[in-house]
Design a protein around this nucleic acid. Structure first.
Lengths: 158, 158
DNA sequence: GTAAATCCTAGCAAAATACTAGGAAATTGG
DNA sequence: CCAATTTCCTAGTATTTTGCTAGGATTTAC
């Protein structure tokens, strides 16, 4: 009866890992879905869809054909965790409140109390994900894993 | 194809409004589900379930029988928006990462990069909801709505 | 030309969501 | 005691979302 909500889906969780992986391995040549899939233990076919979404969002570029794959579309320092998660999860705002949008219309906006609660939650999530940048994560990954081996992901879906 | 995730469900959104309503109207006598339902435009039967969850969480007490209803189980200043939302939504942590739990076991925890991302998001949401207290919301509600009329909620599900 | 890769659309089982429904149990007021 | 009012408890259910899988078309390197 009681499942937890407000969860990031596998799209966001897998996708962020995939992009960190890409940032680490695509220094010179494009990285294929197959290789990311192997290192990160994510279904190739599913990952394909995630990469497609990241491409549409302008975060990665693709190279088709043999020896093709993906590379970052911009420098890792110019991509935030928020950019990645929003590309995959849609809006990260836990409440869609029209009264908070610049052009939004809400009849009860003037007298709505909960609006301020939603606003603070929304802003808090946005701030948190936007201040985390991909280059920091790549650096942290190298620090945690100097040998360049990836952790065994078979048990961990995050 | 692209629906937004990371959303607070109606349980949390309706439930917080219901508890603010309860805090305003249960000063002396218990408030019935019917009256909250009417003011807040929430289905009686659904609200019943929400109140039951809030009761299990120890946030409200119930009085059965005619003229019964609900009252706050503690002072409004001792109930946070986080208490209410967690009672209705379960954990508010967007990622359940075993490596972040005190007793959690995760084989890849030592070398897991994304763990820190999830940690920061989780902490950020928790901090935001826990610093909002019910008495502040009641006060704000009175300020926005001096005549004691409730906004028309028929269009707004938040 | 063939193998390796992305691209694109569709389908689908399982789970979650947002309710509705039926009735039992407790309490009050007459 | 009775009838009305109210909470309490369990179940059912239509719709949507999630987390994939499947098939094949297209592009490119060698």
């Amino acid at each position: 009866m009681e499942g937890d909500k407000l969860k990031l889906s596998t799209k966001g969780r897998y996708g962020l890992r995939a992009l960190i992986d890409l940032a680490q391995y695509s220094k010179d040549a494009p990285v294929s879905i197959m290789s990311i899939s192997a290192r990160q233990d994510i279904s190739e076919r599913y990952l394909e869809q995630l990469m497609s979404m990241l491409k549409k969002a302008g975060l990665v570029r693709s190279v088709r054909g043999a020896n093709g794959g993906y590379i970052l579309a911009k420098d890792a320092k110019d991509i935030s965790a928020g950019d990645v998660l929003r590309a995959l999860e849609g809006s990260l705002e836990p409440v869609d409140c029209p009264g908070l949008e610049p052009e939004g219309v809400c009849r009860s906006a003037d007298t709505c109390v909960t609006k301020y609660v939603w606003k603070r939650i929304n802003e808090s999530v946005s701030r948190a994900v936007d201040e985390i940048r991909l280059d920091q994560l790549v650096e942290e990954s190298r620090r945690l894993n100097p040998e360049g081996e990836e952790p065994d992901r078979s048990e961990c879906k995050n």
